[in-house]
Design a binder for these strands. Structure first.
Length: 754
DNA sequence: GTTCTAGAAC
DNA sequence: GTTCTAGAAC
């Protein structure tokens, strides 16, 4: 870029005007340094306004910045606005300070994220107090939402700096300005760099010993992710978009009853994306309040729409007079939900393709708890359209389903629904019942009802997501494939508000860890029999350690699948692992090295063939520990796995042994890192090569053990007392930890066994 | 995994 | 009265 050539002072007419320079850049991009460097040598009167120190040296408000800026400009001074100003909205009020007497510039410090992060991580005593690992998260989050300034916002000059030499150029330009010099107008230095998503696509579905083509599927999904992101962005600036897809459908149906002929071209290009068509659950026969139900639909759609790649969710109802559809449409547009990924559609859910032209590979059925055909509404229609094949396939999996849960059933290829409509899976969902004439009525208990309905949609969408994840490249065309894993949901919900019903089955599974997915036979009309029991998918798909993971336990799994979507916590991504800061660190330094292998949920799943992966994880963890020890030689690390983790997806903890963290709050936290429950990585690897699997320690026993100092082994009555003890205990570590490299410390650290 | 909070422990 | 834990809910 050629800053110098474009930046000669010019034009008498503008002379003497104060200049307002709005800096744009994340923490660590060098905004403050830039201002200081300019001011150090400039003959122009500059004022730097920094939100981090505007309130007597402390962080202040945007309003304070605006006020100070206005005052300084009035005094004839030029002003730097030294805050991140990453989006148009943030900048707008500052731009308004410009006018006939003030020129407004933007200076964009668009430096590599890595550089900004490493600077902000390293800095100490920064005014904004953004230090350590949190800085990385903040920088990443900001970069994801960055919005470059445009002249149309009201800037007369915008300078982009994308590397150090650009910055130097801009520095020279601004530094050279005398009190009455001006700069030429326009945009300088912008390169093609609006990309927010790096297309370095990582493999996730790397099943060892499997020949499935999941790799390709994963890549395809990711590429389309980026494409649909682009679509979504374009949509914002033009009134025509896939929103009109559903509107089209409505309009056409208005005129032609049941026939839909017109298709929006935007929609057509997306029509190969995996699509789930679902009816509104519980709002018809089960008489659930429509307002509440539509709020829940929107809530759950919002939650899942980002998790399913380019896949689409379509709420279907038979008539354009549907109150549910109009409520949902209204709420979806208010919430700005991507209409490429979620829209409403009027039509018969069993004939969406043949009559509506909408390709849906998966449809949801508002099932009854017995999973039986008949009744009425959607359930009757789907069972009837799918033929006996669906009944058989359903029965193979379960005889009943609890309210709030879903059951994925692959549709046999002889089903008419498969042949004519291209539907490969039906997901049965049972919602809460508010109709006193139907079994298990909640008698207007909407507290319970809403929870069950939320669970129902979450289970439905998670079931769909599990299908999407298994799709080979080309999605719908290849859906005949029988390679799917059945995902079943184990929520159990109170059937009746009067009955006190145990809801702790999931916890029991947590503890046993080795639940085999055999479903429960109920098969009779005694509805009590179903309560508290589990309907799980077909046994043949279950691994030996299948465990019911709650929705809150999926976070790491999602990060492993799509680390690029979690830049706020992720530090490093490779083919095999993702490194991230623990969201709730239990020590000064606490990282997770996450395995990127589908199916490796926890240590119990690890076998000999994963040894190389574990070695990689260990090496990566060690490297980060060493990096931290280089900064602070007093840090001592331990690398290991929890015998029974709470979060799904195998992860190695890299944790410093100070345990100096506000997030360490309870016995479980302490005991999970300081008892035998914590399996040192070095031991795990050894056991793996000698015995083919790692020893796992008992959760209940170890979590209830007394609180003991990890160094001197003294016992303490409660967490606060323990914490004040460990803050000062410098006893040598127990002998066993000093062996075999279980503890990792800097060579210059003598305190480890002193 | 966390958050919230009732009630136990002090 | 305050601190702390532990269980439920998410």
């Amino acid at each position: 870029m050629d800053l110098v050539g474009d930046s000669r002072p010019k034009g008498e007419e503008q002379q003497g005007k104060p200049m307002l320079v709005i800096l744009v850049g994340p923490p660590g991009s060098g905004k403050s340094t830039f201002c200081e460097e300019v001011m150090r040598l400039s003959t122009r009167p500059w004022v730097r306004i920094c939100q981090d120190n505007i309130a007597n040296g402390k962080a202040g408000s945007k309003a304070q910045c605006l006020k100070s800026a206005a005052t300084a400009l009035n005094d004839g001074k030029s002003v730097f606005i030294d805050r991140c100003n990453m989006d148009r909205e943030q900048r707008a009020e500052f731009v308004k300070l410009g006018g006939p007497k003030v020129v407004v510039h933007a200076l964009v410090l668009d430096l590599p994220a890595r550089l900004c992060i490493s600077r902000s991580v390293k800095r100490t005593g920064h005014e904004g107090n953004l230090q350590g690992g949190k800085a990385a998260a903040v920088v990443n989050r900001m970069l994801q939402n960055k919005e470059f300034p445009k002249l149309s916002e009201g800037f007369s000059r915008i300078t982009f700096c994308q590397n150090e030499s650009d910055v130097q150029g801009a520095l020279n330009t601004y530094r050279a300005l005398g009190p009455s010099d001006t700069l030429s107008e326009g945009v300088f230095g912008q390169k093609n760099s609006d990309a927010k998503v790096q297309l370095g696509i990582m493999k996730f579905f790397k099943k060892t010993g499997s020949s499935e083509s999941d790799n390709a599927g994963s890549i395809a999904n990711n590429v389309q992710d980026a494409a649909s992101l682009k679509n979504a962005e374009e949509k914002n600036s033009c009134s025509e978009g896939p929103v009109s897809f559903s509107d089209n459908a409505v309009t056409v149906l208005n005129e032609q009853k049941d026939q839909m002929v017109g298709m929006n071209s935007n929609a057509a290009s997306l029509s190969d994306a995996p699509t789930l068509a679902f009816p509104s659950i519980s709002t018809s026969d089960f008489q659930f309040d429509h307002e509440k139900a539509t709020d829940i639909i929107i809530e759950k759609v919002e939650e899942f729409v980002d998790k399913i790649g380019n896949a689409r969710l379509v709420l279907v109802d038979l008539t354009h007079r549907s109150k549910i559809l109009s409520l949902v449409k209204e709420k979806a547009s208010k919430r700005n939900i991507d209409s490429n990924k979620f829209f409403t559609f009027v039509g018969d859910i069993t004939r969406l393709y043949s009559l509506g032209g909408l390709r849906c590979n998966v449809i949801a059925n508002a099932a009854n708890w017995r999973l039986k055909a008949g009744g009425g509404g959607v359930n009757a229609a789907i069972f009837s359209a799918a033929g006996p094949a669906l009944e058989v396939a359903t029965k193979e999996q379960a005889n009943s389903l609890l309210p709030g849960s879903a059951l994925v059933v692959p549709l046999p290829s002889n089903s008419p629904l498969f042949i004519q409509e291209g539907v490969t899976h039906v997901i049965h969902v049972v919602g809460p019942n508010m109709n006193p004439e139907r079994p298990n009525c909640l008698k207007n208990d909407y507290l319970t009802g809403c929870k069950i309905l939320r669970d129902a949609y979450a289970s439905l969408f998670e079931g769909f997501a599990s299908i999407v994840r298994k799709l080979p490249k080309g999605s719908i065309e290849n859906l005949g494939s029988k390679q799917f894993e059945i995902q079943a949901h184990c929520q159990n919900a109170p059937r009746n508000s009067e009955q006190k019903i145990k809801r702790d089955n999931a916890h029991e599974y947590d503890r046993t860890k080795k639940y085999k997915g055999s479903h429960t036979e109920t098969g009779d009309d005694n509805s009590d029999a179903i309560v508290g029991k589990i309907s799980l998918g077909s046994e043949k798909f279950d691994r030996s350690t299948t465990k019911a993971w709650g929705s809150w336990a999926q976070a790491l799994y999602e990060i492993a699948r799509q680390p690029q979507k979690h830049k706020d916590v992720v530090l490093d991504i490779s083919d095999d692992v993702v490194v991230l800061n623990d969201l709730y660190p239990k020590a000064q330094k606490h990282l997770l090295v996450l395995a990127r292998y589908e199916g490796l949920d926890q240590l119990a799943d690890v076998r000999k063939e994963h040894l190389q992966l574990l070695k990689t994880m260990h090496a990566v963890g060690l490297k980060w520990a060493e990096t931290f020890m280089h900064e602070d030689a007093s840090l001592i690390f331990r690398l290991g796995y929890h015998s029974a983790p709470s979060m799904r997806q195998l992860h190695l903890h890299v944790i410093s042994q100070d345990f100096d963290s506000k997030q360490l709050k309870n016995k479980k936290h302490w005991n999970s890192f300081t008892t035998a429950f914590f399996r040192d990585s070095v031991d795990v690897m050894k056991e793996l090569s000698s015995h083919g699997k790692a020893r796992l320690e008992d959760y209940d026993k170890l979590m209830s053990t007394e609180l003991r100092c990890h160094r001197c082994r003294s016992a303490h009555p409660n967490i606060p007392r323990l914490k004040s003890h460990i803050a000062n205990c410098r006893a040598p570590f127990p002998a066993n930890l000093l062996q075999n490299g279980r503890l990792v410390s800097s060579p210059s650290n003598a305190s480890i066994d002193a």
